[in-house]
Amino acid sequence: MKKISTLAALPVALLLALPAAHAADEDAYAEFKAMMDRSFKTTGIAPKHRMYQLDFQKACSQEKQPSKAEMARIEAEQMKTIRYPADGKYFGDWKQGEKIALDGRGLTWTDKTPLNNGGGCYNCHQLSHHEISYGTIGPSLLEYGKARGNTEEIIKYTWGKIYNAKAFNACSNMPRNGDAEILTEQQMKHLMAFLFDPASPVNKK
């Protein structure tokens, strides 16, 4: 949206001076947006406005990543969204965390409620020693806590990554679990325990 307002502020003469190819791109993009607008509808808990992009979603919707400067700008913006636990407690119950990691349900138009979502962690990550049905879109997190220790720095980093991965990599494939209200603070605490607890199968064979 910011781009549009900047463009509108340009003198008309300058707009006319733009290369024809650029103007054609703008036309094609406007046509694309119109196509998207007429192609989707609200169903159940999934409203049509889900198709309207946030700024960073738009910037990350290309074959190539945005420029380094743009990535850094997005990351700084997203960093501001992270809320750390008000009570200063980062860890819940790893057994509940494991269930959340395995559960990939939630937020589709066939789900009854936008609440009680799974974390879907196993869709993309290897996590525990015993679960072999794991995806590979994200890196393996096997022995996460054992390998990294439990310094305040790594704990806060991990919380932030779960809360809003875009703060660390603007175009990350990982959802913003906290910022987009996919998971609750308590659910994220359970996931933290699953990752860090020495008794969790992530760390213990």
Binding site: M35, M36, R50, Q57, N173, P175, R176, A180, I182
Partner: peptide, 15 residues
């Protein structure tokens, strides 16, 4: 248009 749609990220999971 299909290519633009293929890379179009949207929704609560940014997919």
């Amino acid at each position: 248009m299909g290519k633009l749609a293929f890379y179009y990220r949207a929704g609560p999971m940014d997919f």
